[in-house]
């Protein structure tokens, strides 16, 4: 791999732009593809570039059929928006980062953000509906509300339901969740909308501590990403 190609790749990864490297495994020639443009000593036909773009969109690495061209896709990162810089967030945020999610925590409460000591995680001190809307959740975004406070969770969930987020989860017991569903129904959300909310949040693994609950939430997010949304 030429140094210029490796540098382009690192730059794209740092700026979080989806891209791909293409290697002709018979000739060892390579190129770098980003936003429909290819650069390098390997020349691609427009049909090949089209195939690479489709693979980037699908986040799938592999060979272009019937060719020696191997495409390594570096897809747009998945994101997780966590509402509430609470105790569970202290465990969930770093676990989700390890699993490849770009994590942002939204909490308007300065004291919680300070107490969470999550210096490595992006945080936004805004009201959750504004924060969620600003982050423009898409098909690669998971949204988890953890504040347990309707004043903060409800607006976040309302904003989440208006987005394409592939996963929406909300902490709270069955009872809390039933009340939450009633409040959101009064706001005009339909049963189909509300069925998108995973509540009580997480897989049932008998989690007790904040970090165990984080494991159950991340387990559910991965399940939905890999087995349902994919």
């Amino acid at each position: 791999m030429k140094s210029s190609l490796f540098d382009s790749l690192c730059e794209a990864l740092l700026s979080k732009h989806a891209c791909a490297t293409v290697s002709n495994l018979a000739t060892d020639k390579q190129c770098f593809v980003q936003s429909g443009n290819a650069g390098g000593d390997l020349e691609l036909s427009s049909a090949d570039i089209q195939s690479v773009e489709e693979m980037i969109a699908a986040d799938v690495s592999g060979h272009i059929a019937k060719t020696d061209l191997f495409v390594r896709v570096y897809g747009p990162n998945y994101r997780m928006i966590i509402v509430g810089a609470v105790h569970i967030a202290q465990a969930l945020a770093p676990m989700a980062q390890l699993a490849g999610f770009d994590v942002t925590i939204i909490d308007p409460r300065e004291a919680f953000v300070q107490a969470s000591r999550l210096s490595d995680v992006a945080s936004i001190r805004e009201w959750p509906d504004d924060g969620v809307t600003k982050l423009e959740p898409d098909l690669r975004t998971a949204i988890v509300t953890l504040t347990h406070d309707p004043k903060l969770d409800d607006p976040a969930l309302a904003a989440a339901l208006k987005s394409d987020a592939f996963y929406i989860g909300s902490l709270g017991s069955k009872k809390t969740h039933a009340k939450r569903i009633r409040r959101l129904t009064e706001q005009g959300f339909t049963d189909a909308d509300l069925s998108r909310i995973h509540g009580p949040v997480g897989l049932d693994i008998g989690a007790k501590t904040p970090s165990e609950i984080a494991v159950s939430i991340l387990g559910e997010v991965v399940t939905i990403r890999r087995l349902v949304a994919a």
């Binding site: 690192c10 990864l13 390890l98």
Partner: peptide
Amino acid sequence: MKDIDTDPLVRLSE
């Protein structure tokens, strides 16, 4: 970048 799937490239660039 903490993602352990892209970590090899980070280490390589270091």
